[in-house]
Design a protein around this nucleic acid. Structure first.
Lengths: 210, 210
DNA sequence: CCTGAAATACCGGTTTTCATGGAGAAATGC
DNA sequence: GCATTTCTCCATGAAAACCGGTATTTCAGG
């Protein structure tokens, strides 16, 4: 019950994890949890009429809108510190998060102590990144740096391909010619830097498109 | 500090979730957490010299050894009640769990209250299954009932296919003829009930083989 | 020793994908 | 309104995948 507690909010849709974070935060003397939301939208709504010092943001799928949400939240609340919580260790995801407003990036298997410490580090205007992740980020393996940006049509075709549909089937389903479908699929393979559909699907799943 | 608390142990490798479960359990008067382990093996070791009333078992990937572990733990500790915790809603996974010793099956997004209630239900020799899951289990869609059983070789080839290797490439890598590889791939597609590699990879990922 | 499962291999034929390269129309964004 | 993306379509040939059988070897378990 200290007079000036720092306010933490959470965006996370698994209540067990919320419970875990909540317990960790409330056990820290200087922190208090002032909100838990299952979507970033709800959190933004909350921030319209309230303030907070730090946001723990769950990033479930790298390709989803989470990263975009992070950018938006930060844009509207410049003072709010954001820590991304995720399981993904792909360089591109980390990069994307950190260039989109996150002040820190933690893996979900972080220990209690690491989490608390990180929160304070970030509040102290420091930038945090687990050593495990620094390795990924600064390793010399010069692999793909960013997630591909897919067009609507490409996403549509990706989904159909993943369901096992052949080019011809997709074409007739979408009322376009199979050449068009081929083109899209080719572009998909190019964007994902693979050379066949099997690898395409695997990479797409890994990166959260499926 | 009631005299006879029921002892709960956890198998779960994400410390934040452990924290959440721990907090939930310790807040229930009649329960106490007496151990948290990141693997089922460790839990079994613990059970050699200790007892427990209930085990919350994390099932991360349906095709992994988790289900087998459940069976083993139950075999060795018949009195121990096991609740599986997972994100998977596939009928086959639920089936597998419940026929391998689990006394209940909860989704990871279960609420605090549901979890507590379920624990007591199970301790009361009831069998628990969320209504959401009952629907899946007893719905009339007569789709695939069990995960396919893959041979060692098939797993090997599945992995290589997912990496984008062509039949010829796989063949030369494994020092077998490409006809053999074709056969294995065909068997894989049959087992997964799909008709091309793209769908094969997707289904394999979904079911935890990749 | 026998059986069954697994791994290996082959044939012949059809379908589908993959790689190239180009190109016009439509929508989107500034 | 202009530029850039995006979506559309085309042709061709080689490569790979898919299909439906069949069959031999190997090896562990009963």
């Amino acid at each position: 019950m200290a007079p000036f507690k720092l306010s933490v909010i959470i965006v996370e849709d698994h209540s067990i994890i919320v419970e875990g974070l909540s317990s960790i935060i409330n056990n820290a003397d200087e922190l208090e949890l002032s909100g838990a939301f299952s979507t970033a939208e709800e959190a933004m709504e909350f921030l319209e009429t309230n303030t907070a010092d730090i946001l723990l943001l769950d990033i479930s799928l790298p390709a989803m809108s989470d990263i975009e949400m992070c950018r938006l939240v930060k844009q509207k609340n410049k003072k709010l510190k954001i820590i991304a919580l995720t399981n993904h260790t792909e360089r591109s995801v980390i990069n994307d998060m950190l260039t989109n407003g996150a002040d820190g990036y933690l893996l979900k298997n972080t220990s209690k102590n690491d989490l608390i410490e990180s929160i304070f580090q970030v509040l102290d205007n420091k930038f945090i990144l687990q050593s495990e992740l620094q390795k990924v980020l600064f390793s010399n393996t010069q692999t793909s740096n960013t997630l591909p940006r897919l067009t609507t049509r490409e996403k549509e075709i990706l989904l159909l391909v993943s369901n096992g549909a052949t080019t011809a089937a997709i074409a007739s389903q979408l009322y376009i010619s199979s050449q068009t479908v081929e083109t899209h699929r080719r572009n998909l393979m190019q964007k994902f830097e693979v050379n066949n559909s099997a690898a395409l699907i695997k990479k797409a799943v890994e990166q959260g498109f499926l």
